[in-house]
Design a protein around this nucleic acid. Sequence first.
DNA 1: CAAACCAATTGCATTTTGCAATCGGTTGTA
DNA 2: TACAACCGATTGCAAAATGCAATTGGTTTG
Lengths: 175, 175
Amino acid sequence: MSIDRRSGCPINLSLEVFGDRWSLIILRDMIFGGKRHFRDLLNRSLERIASNILADRLKRLMELGMLTRADDPTHKQKAIYSLTEMAITLVPILAHLGAWGRVWLPVSEELSIRAELLEKGGPPMWEKFMDELRHEHLGTPSDTPPDATVRATLQAGYEAVVARKAPGAGCDVGA
Amino acid sequence: MSIDRRSGCPINLSLEVFGDRWSLIILRDMIFGGKRHFRDLLNRSLERIASNILADRLKRLMELGMLTRADDPTHKQKAIYSLTEMAITLVPILAHLGAWGRVWLPVSEELSIRAELLEKGGPPMWEKFMDELRHEHLGTPSDTPPDATVRATLQAGYEAVVARKAPGAGCDVGA
DNA sequence: CAAACCAATTGCATTTTGCAATCGGTTGTA
DNA sequence: TACAACCGATTGCAAAATGCAATTGGTTTG
């Protein structure tokens, strides 16, 4: 484990694991965006992380027990990254980060609707979401239909905001 | 405001404010340790932050609206830093960071008892603590006696663990 | 009165970050 | 079938950030 351990304080140790600019962004994209491949995380993410930083952080998060990596059976070149239980239990922290950011920072409406819905849903919603992530990443059993998952709820909220704010609403400007 | 704004996502924006190794450590020491002077934060903190980093982060947190700075009326050279409401509302995030760290990382018992008590106390305890911080840093009225504050509770828990684990307990080795 | 303290700043070496290009192989599309 | 796009990285290099230790001139303490 490549952490300093400057002190045994739990907050300090948590920050030694993910207290950098990029680790929680990667985990956010995996948790909320369902991203699991390198190129998704590199090119289909809004903050434009650098490829060497992405590679470094993925490796580090694996070494620290937050992620695992396997060959993707559907594509010879692709690696698929999975969250461990250690990472999945970060959902409440990410929910709180989102809620705090909504209050104090210049968020965009499209990108903050998920945080709003998570805050409204509270801990029961977060628990349900973590169970879904366990199913998806760890193979645990799940009885939630795919269109009733928390991620589907969050995505529907996002799409509703996007549709409401679409330019030229009411004009047919082509697909 | 010197943030990138790489995206309008609230999690990203929160991390642009305090997603570095040191900002939340400084805020932790102010919130939980009652530290408000440069030397306290520099020399009486376990993680040994470098002085140029401390100066830089304090300046940045002030610019971002998390802290204010005033001359300390009790000492001509001392500056006293105060938390703003923006910073005070980080208490739940810090509580969750502590709880997560206790589960997954090699914490020390002395330094994690505060996190344990906060987790047990839950949101009502956090709200009470934030009110106390408002009183201490923003001058709002408070009706909590000094020995019944959340910080006093946390400190008593810490001291109980330290006394229980003291070497040579039962020997009088001098003051 | 001397030592310790105050909030920083500074010099410098090391490490990290960010940008862009690159690699050889694999897959998808016209 | 040819070729472009894709795959998970790695690499080169410049800029930025970090960390260590020393320093500053004034203030407070023992």
